[in-house]
């Protein structure tokens, strides 16, 4: 076994990690809103991500929509999906709701696999990123002026973290409002919130719709990053990495999501520098093993996560 860490010094490594970490940060902001602030166990977040990415790609490729309109529509469609799935499942509690959201995400995956004329089936879709490529070239020309022209991935990095910053500001702002307070009350005790006159179902629906919109934005960015989407791009693993980010960053902290995501993806990508005399699929398994160890270490050291509040965790039991 050898470890070659020279790549860690290269900027393109960090830009690559940063893009993926940023995408998962946006994705996990939605999970944080659901799990950390509303008490909804949403295990179907990857499904909303798929809805967003496919909606964008299909609108661009099949209906020839301009990219900005397609991206806006993809968020709206994912929100609609959130409302439909939520209306059917949000009256369920805890574990049952979690099962229903997993099933909904499976359903999305099933459609993506089988509606081949629209989604390309298992071959997937590509070629939807022409407008983005043009914008990236324009941005690179500007970046060249400040000496950053040779980092071809830098535009996506900037756009991703700009979107994360906007979403973070919006959610942080909402958290401090009376609306955010009702969400926290629902997280604490639904019956108590209802007894004080709060329409628990309506708030949960709003929470899920906003999370779905964030998943869709993350999905659009992921699609631009990988330039080819197929059903496995949005497998249940994506949701579980999102939950790992949530636990690492700490439940109930929006900013913690970014810390958790950067830590997780740094470890995940750096783990690939550990050269093992093993087949590629086994190396991938070893990577996840290392991530698991890091997760355990953080949980032992800080059970509330990097930015979570220990007192709230203890009080909630």
């Amino acid at each position: 076994m050898t470890i070659d860490l020279t790549a860690l010094a290269a900027p393109d490594f960090w830009i690559g990690v940063g893009i993926v970490a940023g995408i998962y940060s946006i994705f996990s902001l939605g999970l944080q809103l659901n799990v950390g602030f509303t008490g909804i166990l949403n295990f179907g977040q990857a499904g909303f991500m798929a809805v967003g990415a496919y909606a964008m790609a299909i609108l661009i490729l099949k209906l020839h929509w301009p990219a900005p309109a397609a991206i806006a529509a993809s968020t709206a469609i994912a929100m609609l999906a959130g409302i439909v799935i939520g209306a059917a499942s949000l009256r369920l509690s805890g574990d049952y709701l979690a099962m229903a959201t997993i099933a909904a995400a499976q359903l999305v995956g099933g459609v993506a696999q089988n509606a081949a004329p629209l989604t390309g089936g298992n071959q997937g879709l590509l070629g939807y990123d022409a407008a983005w490529a043009a914008l990236a070239r324009w941005m690179l020309a500007r970046l060249r002026a400040v000496g950053l022209g040779d980092q071809s991935q830098l535009p996506l990095f900037i756009v991703t973290w700009a979107i994360f910053g906007l979403a973070l500001a919006l959610l942080t702002g909402l958290r401090g409002t009376p609306w955010g307070r009702v969400l926290r009350a629902i997280r604490e005790d639904e019956a108590a919130a209802a007894a004080l006159g709060k329409n628990v179902f309506a708030y949960k629906l709003q929470s899920l719709a906003i999370a779905a919109a964030l998943a869709a934005l993350a999905g659009d960015l992921l699609a631009l990053n990988i330039t080819l989407i197929y059903p496995q791009s949005f497998s249940a693993d994506v949701t579980f990495i999102g939950f790992a980010v949530l636990v690492l960053g700490g439940l109930g902290s929006f900013a913690g999501v970014a810390l958790g995501s950067v830590l997780l993806w740094t470890v995940l990508e750096a783990a690939s520098f550990v050269r093992l005399p093993l087949a590629a699929d086994k190396v991938a398994a070893v990577q996840m093993l290392i991530v698991g160890l890091v997760l355990i270490a953080v949980m032992v050291w800080r059970p509330e996560g990097l930015r979570g509040k220990r007192e709230e965790m203890v009080l909630r039991g």
Binding site: R181, R184, E188, A192, A193, E311, L315
Partner: peptide, 15 residues
């Protein structure tokens, strides 16, 4: 049903 991980004041404002 005091909302445990919310402050006393937030409990009141919620009502």
């Amino acid at each position: 049903k005091a909302l445990a991980a919310m402050t006393v004041l937030d409990n009141m404002l919620l009502a």
